[in-house]
């Protein structure tokens, strides 16, 4: 598949001071989530990709155009900004139509296409209303409409679900998936919301301190780890001795049975392993004289994985750039004691 985005040893920054890179990256046509805490260099990367900021060193291509192609580059990109970026006093149809004219469409084509897009994005009844009167969800959709007006093959979406309620968020993510699946649009989704990336993107990169910390398929990141289980017990005898691999967690225990790997696809072998492990936990609980009330394999989700990666990278920050609490606090054993 042809690379729609390719960066080679790219360094970018302000007043000669690099805040991004050196960065090498290839994105094939598809969907890529761009994650990272505040100050990670996401906006700088978007500026470089949009041709607004010139790289200090390195090179790259976006949809066949070299970086720094300026206007020509932005013809093949649709950008949906995080900020409202609306023009007060304009109606929805005028705004989208104006975007088309800025992108190079004739006035007639632009107007016709704006009507079509607003119909598609279910804004046709609001098209003659002033943008100032639009709800957050409508603003997000009209921003998407202006990004799509010139039918670019590549979309840069900056926090497209920001400020949306759950149903609005679902609708926006469905729309993005449809754009990709049915219309072949590639997009780079820049967000703090891991769920958005998990749901819409095939690949993701995690940026921190201007460097790529992680580049993986989203599916492989959210794998199940069958070697860890969350267990809750009933009627634990006071003199019971916990095995070493039983760690208190909340009102129950986290039972770690050693690394066994695992894949995103649940294979028959994985399922058999889970069954064996479950039996072992039942047996150990029985030996302690306790009754198992709850047992479930622990799923490591993207949030935990990123928190771990960011902590390992030394930042100790979450995706919003806030310091994470690293102190686990005093250990309490609910109803038992450690061996």
């Amino acid at each position: 598949m042809a690379a729609i985005l390719e960066l080679r040893e790219l360094t970018a920054g302000y007043q000669g001071k690099a805040v991004l890179g050196p960065l090498s990256l290839t994105m094939e046509s598809g969907t890529l989530g761009l994650l990272g805490p505040n100050g990670a260099g996401k906006s700088t990367l978007l500026k470089v990709l949009l041709g607004i900021l010139h790289p200090i060193s390195g090179s790259g291509m976006v949809a066949g155009f070299p970086l720094g192609s300026g206007h020509r580059l932005r013809r093949v990109i649709g950008y949906m900004s995080e900020a409202d970026a609306l023009i007060p006093g304009m109606t929805g149809i005028d705004y989208v139509s104006f975007a088309g004219e800025l992108a190079g469409l004739s006035r007639r084509d632009s107007s016709r296409r704006a009507h079509e897009l607003l119909h598609v994005l279910e804004l046709d009844e609001a098209r003659y209303r002033l943008l100032d009167e639009y709800s957050t969800g409508m603003k997000q959709r009209i921003k998407l409409a202006q990004a799509l007006i010139h039918d670019p093959p590549l979309l840069f979406l900056d926090e497209p679900t920001s400020g949306l309620d759950p149903s609005g968020r679902d609708a926006m993510l469905d729309l993005l998936q449809t754009l990709h699946k049915n219309h072949g649009k590639s997009f780079l989704l820049c967000t703090h919301l891991l769920g958005d990336v998990e749901r819409t993107c095939k690949d993701m990169i995690l940026l921190s301190g201007g460097q790529v910390l992680l580049r993986e398929r989203v599916a492989s990141l959210s794998r199940t780890i069958p070697s860890e289980f969350r267990v809750r017990l009933l009627q634990i005898p006071p003199d019971s001795v916990l095995p070493n691999h039983w760690k208190p967690e909340g009102d129950g225990f986290l039972v770690h049975l050693g690394p066994k790997g695992g894949t995103s696809e649940s294979s028959l072998a994985d399922q058999n392993r889970v069954t064996e492990d479950t039996r072992l936990i039942w047996r150990e609980a029985f030996q302690m004289g306790a009754i198992v009330s709850h047992i479930s394999p622990r799923h490591e989700d993207l949030r935990e994985r990123f928190a771990q990666i960011l902590a390992e990278a030394g930042g100790g920050k979450d995706l919003r750039g806030k310091k994470q609490s690293t102190s686990p606090g005093p250990t309490q054993i609910p109803g038992g004691r450690n061996e």
Binding site: G70, H71, A83, L86, I87
Partner: peptide, 11 residues
Amino acid sequence: FRSFPFYFSKP
């Protein structure tokens, strides 16, 4: 009203 992302993301 910070309308510049609208203008300057266009060619």
